[in-house]
């Protein structure tokens, strides 16, 4: 409640492997949180009867939650184009429609990523100066950056499209740089280009071409090329790559963390001495897990479109959705699409 312009976040309540229960739980919890001066509302889109039943059993602030019935859901393995054409009443598409109708300011979905990206591109416009949208994901590093001491670096694109030209990669760099400035409060984010070599002349032609553009750009703080093994070291604040490479890279990073903890878990059960050692280290390991767990940093914003869209991992539980809600609110408050548009309108 308040006189400031309210923010409404539309949530695809049926998307992801833990929908709708974990999503409703995250929204219920978020509704109890104070979110600054601007009042925040949550629009849950999905099978209203199931959502109502779930809410009934949860502590929540009903004044801040509204439900929109969507009779159908897009499955995780469905082909995006077909699904979008066949089921305009699906929860994710209705969530987009709320934004189009001016009833919501952002969309969050843990559902089929292809449908979410394609749906967003069909419902919304690319911001002026952007040729493509890019999905930006954060990953933890040992270095902190910006006024917020942010331990996360940004990598984009991680799968909004497969390929990218040199110009697209420049756009991604500008968008990522703007995002780091706003979200991490990092005034001069270091931007790097992901390649298979630090040499500017090696790599595919679009990467070589992008190196030229980035290194001569007036406003970008270009670090140069980095190789895959340098991503987790946090040498750059923003890593730019084409969607296919980025998607593979981010999944490897997630997998490494999970595999490390699986190994520790099996070690814990193997020998008494290891168990004792791990117990002694458990405080630090817990912190490490918190840092590397994807649930801790919520979702990936889709940059380059004129609305705020956050994609969550399909395995997202209540914690990840809760963090994605925080991110969406922050991005709406910062008017992220406008800030990125301003960045792209600058010298190239």
């Amino acid at each position: 409640m308040g006189s400031e312009e309210p923010i409404t976040i539309a949530i695809d309540a049926m998307g992801g492997y833990h929908a709708p229960d974990e999503i409703v739980e995250a929204v219920a919890k978020a509704s109890l949180r104070r979110d600054g001066d601007r009042p925040v509302y949550f629009a849950l889109v999905g099978d209203e009867i199931s959502l109502s039943e779930a809410l009934f059993e949860l502590d929540h602030n009903s004044e801040r939650i509204q439900l929109y019935h969507a009779p159908t859901v897009v499955g995780m393995s469905e082909r995006p184009q077909r699904a979008i054409e066949d089921r305009p009443d699906a929860s994710i598409l209705q969530a987009f429609d709320l934004v189009v109708a001016g009833q919501a300011d952002a969309v969050i979905s843990a559902g089929n990523p292809g449908v979410t990206v394609l749906g967003a591109l069909r419902r919304f416009n690319l911001i002026e100066g952007a040729n493509r949208a890019a999905l930006a994901s954060v990953y933890p590093t040992p270095r902190v950056r910006g006024a917020a001491d942010d331990p996360f670096s940004l990598i984009l694109d991680v799968g909004a499209s497969l390929r990218a030209s040199a110009d697209d990669l420049l756009d991604f760099a500008l968008m990522g740089s703007a995002y780091a400035r706003i979200v991490s409060r990092n005034d001069q984010p270091k931007v790097a280009l992901l390649s298979n070599s630090r040499e500017s002349t090696l790599g595919p032609p679009e990467v070589v071409g992008a190196y030229e553009l980035l290194s001569h750009h007036e406003t970008l703080n270009f670090y140069g090329n980095i190789e895959g093994h340098e991503i987790p070291r946090g040498l750059a604040d923003v890593v730019v790559c084409e969607g296919f490479a980025g998607d593979v890279a981010i999944k490897i990073l997630e997998g490494i963390s999970e595999a490390a903890f699986d190994l520790a878990r099996s070690a814990y059960h193997s020998k008494v001495a290891w168990r004792m050692g791990l117990k002694l280290l458990s405080g630090g390991l817990k912190q490490l897990k918190q840092l590397t767990d994807f649930e801790e940093y919520g979702g990936a914003p889709l940059l380059g479109i004129d609305e705020v869209v956050i994609l969550c991992h399909p395995r997202s539980g209540r914690k990840a959705i809760g963090n994605a809600l925080r991110l969406a609110i922050k991005n709406v408050r910062a008017d992220l699409p406008r800030a990125i548009a301003e960045e792209l309108a600058g010298p190239r």
Partner: peptide, 18 residues
């Protein structure tokens, strides 16, 4: 009371849902 119409509309819907 500092209430927004949205909060009242949501409350109305909540009663129907329950």
């Amino acid at each position: 009371g500092g209430y927004a119409v949205t909060a009242l509309a949501n409350s109305f819907q909540d009663l129907i849902r329950r």
